[in-house]
Structures are given as C-alpha cells and as structure tokens.
Simulated scan of single mutants.
Amino acid sequence: MSEAIKTDVLIIGAGPCGLFAVFELGLLDMKTHLVDILDKIGGQCAELYPEKPIYDIPGIPFVTGQGLTDALMEQIKPFNPTFHLNEMVETIEK
C-alpha cells in the first residue's frame, strides 16, 4: 500500500479530458494530481493513434493524437500538476 495523496482534486485518467480538467481547475487555483494506468500521458490518443489525424476538436481543423497531447501539456504547464503513471486508484477518501 502506498502513501495517501493529499490534493484539492484527484483526476483519474491522463488523457485529453483529464489534461483539460487540469487547465480549468488551475484557473480556479486548485492543485491536481492525475493517476493513469498507462505508462505515459495522453490516454488513447497518444497510445493507440499518436499519428492519426483527429478532425473533431473544436477550434482546431486538424491535429494528431500526439499533437493534441503536446498542446495540452503546454497549456497546463503553469499549473504544475503531479502525475502518477503506471498506477491504479484503489480507494478514495474525503
């Protein structure tokens, strides 16, 4: 059993939605930790199709899975999130 994480918000999944949540929560001055079972950031976009074109991201005519991940990482850099990769959430307590 690992040590408990104390944070404002725990995000399960470091894919595009989890990464964008870091941005929105950072604007509210909330500290975030992200946990993902994968060994890298980006979720399915980075893992399954990093070079495949994605056409349905609002405001972006074309981007690859890795390109989207890279852009989101740049966007959240000021908020300094903590990542826990290759890990799985077993319990959550308030």
Rank of each mutant, 00 (worst) to 15 (best):
82 T>F: 09
32 T>L: 04
29 D>H: 12
47 E>Y: 11
2 S>L: 04
46 A>R: 02
37 I>C: 08
88 M>E: 13
41 I>H: 01
93 E>L: 05
80 N>L: 12
39 D>G: 14
65 G>F: 06
10 L>Y: 02
55 Y>E: 10
62 F>H: 12
8 D>F: 14
27 L>K: 15
70 D>A: 01
58 P>Q: 07
86 N>Y: 06
64 T>W: 09
88 M>Y: 09
55 Y>M: 06
83 F>N: 00
82 T>M: 11
91 T>G: 06
42 G>L: 01
44 Q>V: 10
63 V>F: 07
29 D>P: 00
25 L>S: 15
74 E>Q: 05
66 Q>A: 05
16 P>S: 11
54 I>N: 05
62 F>P: 00
94 K>V: 07
33 H>R: 07
13 G>N: 02
9 V>K: 03
45 C>T: 05
76 I>D: 02
68 L>D: 03
53 P>L: 11
79 F>G: 00
50 P>V: 02
84 H>P: 00
6 K>H: 14
24 E>P: 00
2 S>I: 03
38 L>F: 11
59 G>N: 08
42 G>D: 02
17 C>T: 15
84 H>D: 03
62 F>I: 14
58 P>T: 02
81 P>V: 01
73 M>P: 00
53 P>G: 06
9 V>Y: 13
1 M>H: 05
46 A>W: 04
92 I>L: 14
22 V>I: 13
23 F>E: 06
32 T>S: 12
51 E>R: 08
17 C>K: 09
31 K>P: 05
44 Q>M: 14
13 G>L: 07
33 H>I: 10
49 Y>I: 04
52 K>D: 08
9 V>I: 15
44 Q>R: 10
22 V>H: 08
2 S>F: 01
65 G>E: 03
26 G>H: 11
21 A>C: 12
77 K>R: 13
51 E>Y: 08
17 C>V: 15
55 Y>P: 03
13 G>P: 10
83 F>G: 02
14 A>C: 13
19 L>Q: 00
92 I>E: 03
40 K>Q: 13
11 I>Y: 10
38 L>Y: 12
32 T>E: 06
75 Q>L: 07
51 E>L: 07
87 E>A: 14
72 L>C: 02
54 I>Y: 10
1 M>R: 03
32 T>P: 04
39 D>Y: 11
58 P>K: 05
4 A>W: 07
70 D>L: 00
24 E>K: 15
36 D>G: 01
1 M>E: 05
